[in-house]
Design a protein around this nucleic acid. Structure first.
Lengths: 354, 354
DNA sequence: TTGAAAGCGTTACCAA
DNA sequence: TTGGTAACGCTTTCAA
C-alpha cells in the first residue's frame, strides 16, 4: 500500500501504514506491536506507540476481522430484551464484555420464533461474532448440528444444548418449591398462571416449572387442574387472572405465577375485582423481581446477575482458549416469604361473587 | 481471485467467487445482483439467486464493510441498559433496526462517565457503525465537534445535541405538572427525591425536572427546600426516603420522585416505617412504569415506546439519505391520577415519630 | 527482531 | 448489461 509522503496531509483517518511511516518501521511491525505480540524490541514498541498517539490512530475493526478472522464482537441472542430476566442478564454481562474489549451485538427477536430461525439458518451470525450467548433459545436438532460447525464458543443461559456450557436454575425445583410452600399453608385449590404454548421461545422453563408443581401436587394426592396459559409478562398475568375470574365459579385459594411479572399483573386484576391478597387469594411468584419487595410478593428467588456474570466469565475463558470444567452450571434458588401468601380462609368469600 | 475448479469441494463457507463460478457470471455481477442494483438482466438475476441458494452463500459483512464503507450496524449508546427507560427504548428500537437488516451494537456504560469518554475519544465508534443513537448522553463541546466529522447519522433521545435530531419530552413541564398537581391538592411541604449529581449521565433530565418543580413552587409563593439527591433507580429511592426520615424532624406531606422507580423505592421504605401512602404522605412519580398501575402510583406519563419508534424511524430515514423536517421531536406527557396522592391531613401524624 | 508481499472477501471503477 | 481489476486496511507467512 502506498503511504502518503506527507502523512499530516491525510484527509481521512490514519491507517496502519501512516503509523508505520511515522514510526519509521514496517506495517507488519506496527501490527505486531499494537497487538502486544512477542518479538518486538522495546525501542520499536515505544516508537510505534508514540506514532499511534501523535496520529490518533485507531485500527479498523473490520479490516482486522477480514484479515485475522476475529470480529471482536460477541453476540447475544434473546427472545426479548426488556423483560426482567433478559434485561438484567444483559446488564450483568455487558460490562464484562466491554472490559474485555469486545463489542456486544444484541439480537433481540421480539418473541418471534420465525426471526430466530432466519437468524440461525442464514449462516450470517457465524461470520459476525467470535462467540455467542443464547438466552432461553430453543434449537432444532438441525440447527444444533449446524452451529457446531461454526467452531467458536457458545454459552447458553436457561435452555441448554449439548455440547455447550449452560447456566441455569432448576426450574422444576422452583415450581415444586413454590407449590410446596402453598400446600404447607394448607392450600388445596391451586391455579397455575402458566406461559403460553404459542410463545415458543420460553417454553421449556415454563414446562419444567409446571412439572415441578404437578409433582408437588401429586405427592399431596392432588391434581393441578387449573392451568391458565398466557404471555410471560405483566399483561399476560392480568389477562390470565381476568380469565380465571370470568370462567370459574369458584376461586382457587392460591395462585402460582410463572414469574413475578405475571404475578404483578394478576394481583392488579384481583384487586380491581375487590379481592384482597392474601386474605382472599394467596399469590406466589418466581424470580424475586426488585418490585416484589414493594408489592410484598412471596416468591422463589433466583439471582440473574450472578447467572449473567457467570455466563460471561465462562464465555471469556473459552475465548481465551481456556477450558471450563463442567457443562452445566446450576444456580441456587430459594423461597422468599413476604406478605402475599397466607393460609386459606375457611369461610365463604365475601366481596366477590360472579 | 482464484475460484476453486470444483466448488462443491470447498471446505469453508462459499464466497462470492464460488457463487459467480456456479452462476457462470462475474464476481461483480453477483455483487450487483445481490444488492439489487439496477442494470442486472432478469435472467442473470435468477441465475445468481439460484446459485446463492444452492451454495447457501451468505456475504461476509466485514469484507463488504471494508470495501464499501458500510458496516451494516447501528450503535446505541446508553448509560444503563436495564433501567426502565432504556430497556423499553431499546426494545422498541430493536425490531425496526432488525427489519432494516442492521445489526444493533449496544454500548452500555454501566453508568460510567469515564467509559463514555473512552468510547467517544478513541474514534473507534466511527468505523464500527453506520449510525448512532445516543440515549441520554451528555457530550462535551470537543466531542460534539469531533463527532460532526464522523459524517454519519446521529439521533439522540433525551439529551439533545446540535445539529442532530432529538426525541424527548419536556422534563421541565413534567416536573411542573407533578408539582402543580400536589399544590392543587393543598400540599405545601413538598420534597423532591432527585437524581444524584455524581451520576453525571442523566443529569439534565433531572435538572430540568427540578427546575419545573421550583417554578411551580415559586408561583405558589413557596421554596423547594427539601431536595434529596440519590441514584436514579429503586434503590436510590429507598436510600433517599430513608435519609428523609432520618434527618428530618417533620415529614413532608408529599414527595415528588425523579421517576417511578425512585418512587417505588421510596414507597417501600415509607411502608416499612409504618407510614401509609397517601394517608400520611402523598407520592408522585414520572414515567408511568407498568408497575405503577399495580402499586397505584400517581405519575406523569411518558410513552417510551413511541419515543423509541420515532427515534428509530428518523435514523432509518437518515440512513436512506432522506431528510427529516425538524431537529426536535417533543413527545407529549400527561398526568395519570391513581391512589398515591391525596390532600394533606391536617392533624398530627400518628404512627410515626422519630 | 524486522520487512516485503500475499492474501482476506467484498465493492467500485472503467472498459467493453 | 457485463467483466476485469484495483482498491479497502489489516494480518500472516516467509525470508532476511
Amino acid at each position: 500500500m502506498a503511504v502518503p509522503s506527507d502523512a499530516s496531509t491525510a484527509s481521512h483517518s490514519p491507517t496502519i501504514d501512516h503509523v508505520a511511516a511515522r514510526a519509521g518501521v514496517s506495517t507488519a511491525t506496527v501490527s505486531r506491536a499494537l497487538r502486544g505480540l512477542a518479538n518486538v524490541a522495546p525501542r520499536t514498541q515505544a516508537k510505534v506507540e508514540a506514532a499511534v498517539k501523535e496520529l490518533g490512530y485507531v485500527p479498523l475493526s473490520f479490516a482486522a476481522a477480514l484479515a485475522g478472522g476475529k470480529t471482536g464482537a460477541i453476540g447475544i441472542v434473546a427472545p426479548w430484551t426488556s423483560r426482567w430476566f433478559t434485561a438484567h442478564l444483559i446488564n450483568a454481562v455487558e460490562p464484562l464484555i466491554g472490559e474485555a474489549n469486545y463489542d456486544l451485538i444484541l439480537y433481540g427477536l421480539g418473541g418471534s420464533n420465525e426471526r430466530l430461525r432466519r437468524l440461525l439458518n442464514r449462516n450470517a451470525l457465524a461470520s459476525r461474532v467470535d462467540a455467542l450467548m443464547l438466552i432461553n433459545i430453543p434449537l432444532t436438532e438441525d440447527e444444533r448440528v449446524q452451529m457446531k460447525t461454526w467452531g467458536f464458543p457458545i454459552v447458553s443461559v436457561g435452555m441448554g444444548h449439548t455440547p455447550w456450557p449452560n447456566v441455569e436454575i432448576d426450574d422444576e425445583a422452583g415450581g415444586r418449591l413454590a407449590c410446596e410452600h402453598l400446600l404447607l399453608q394448607g392450600h388445596r385449590d391451586i391455579a397455575y398462571l402458566s406461559g403460553d404454548r404459542n410463545e415458543e421461545l420460553a417454553i421449556w422453563s415454563n414446562h419444567d416449572r409446571e412439572t415441578g408443581i404437578k409433582e408437588a401436587m401429586a405427592e399431596a394426592g392432588l391434581d393441578l387442574t387449573r392451568v391458565i396459559r398466557t404471555a410471560y409478562d405483566m399483561r399476560g398475568g392480568s389477562d390470565a387472572a381476568r380469565r380465571l375470574l370470568e370462567h370459574s365459579d369458584t376461586l382457587p385459594t392460591a395462585i402460582i405465577a410463572y414469574c413475578d411479572e405475571t404475578a404483578f399483573g394478576a394481583i392488579g386484576v384481583l384487586r380491581e375485582h375487590g379481592l384482597r391478597v392474601p386474605e382472599d387469594v394467596s399469590v406466589i411468584g418466581i424470580d424475586d423481581h426488585e418490585m416484589s419487595s414493594i408489592v410484598g410478593l412471596t416468591t422463589i428467588r433466583q439471582d440473574v446477575r450472578a447467572q449473567g456474570t457467570l455466563a460471561a466469565q465462562i464465555m471469556l475463558r473459552l475465548l481465551r482458549g481456556e477450558s471450563v470444567d463442567a457443562s452445566n452450571f446450576q444456580q441456587p434458588i430459594g423461597l422468599v416469604e413476604r406478605a402475599s401468601v397466607a393460609p386459606p380462609r375457611e369461610h365463604e368469600l365475601t366481596g366477590w361473587r360472579r
